[in-house]
């Protein structure tokens, strides 16, 4: 059985649950699961660089921003979002971390000297800085503008409170 099918079903199920789950907090967690599954599918498609970027930006940054927005706009106080006690959550995270580390050590087969030709970061960087350098600079300006806009919008006025 191809592992891509598992990721396929995880991606579809978790994106349905983003729409369907009652608590918005759970939606954000399912959103992170969707992003991780899509990153795995990128790995299946020989796009290792994109898989890492996907986990860093989507599963890392965007999900955390969404969680911050949810917590800052929450009306009710002290909701137990997962229905678990703090100690059991600690045990669960330690177990998950251990399983991930052990499976990386046991199952990893790619050596450092192995050459990946198609989707290697070197080829992507060559294409980016030779053919698409103008687009790269425009994206840099876009990110700067978004940064300034986000800070401007979210700041608190001095005379407000």
């Amino acid at each position: 059985m191809d592992f891509a099918y598992v990721l396929w079903f995880v991606a579809v199920f978790s994106s349905i649950m983003v729409v369907h789950s009652k608590e918005v907090f759970h939606s954000a967690l399912y959103l992170a699961l969707t992003f991780v599954a899509v990153a795995g599918l990128f790995l299946m498609l020989d796009a290792e660089f994109l898989a890492v970027i996907q986990i860093l930006i989507y599963a890392g940054a965007v999900t955390v921003i969404a969680l911050f927005a949810i917590m800052l706009t929450r009306r009710e106080e002290g909701v137990d979002v997962l229905g678990l006690s703090l100690n059991s959550m600690k045990i669960i995270s330690v177990v998950v971390f251990g399983v991930v580390i052990i499976s990386i050590i046991v199952f990893s087969q790619v050596g450092l000297e192995e050459k990946l030709i198609y989707g290697s970061t070197y080829n992507i960087a060559t294409l980016l800085f030779e053919s698409y350098i103008l687009h790269f600079e425009l994206i840099a300006y876009l990110l700067l503008g978004a940064l300034i806009a986000a800070v401007y919008l979210a700041r608190r006025d001095e005379n407000e409170s």
Binding site: A47, F49, L50, I53, Q54, I57, Y58, A61, V62, I65, A66, F68, A69, G119, I124, L127, L128, Y132, H135, I139, L142, L143, G145, A146, L147, A149, A150, V151, L153, A154
Partner: peptide, 20 residues
Amino acid sequence: QLFVTFSLAIAAAEAAVGFA
């Protein structure tokens, strides 16, 4: 894949401004 990289940058900018 490069277009996806640009799309990721735009998505990050959109998320920051949208949540602000």
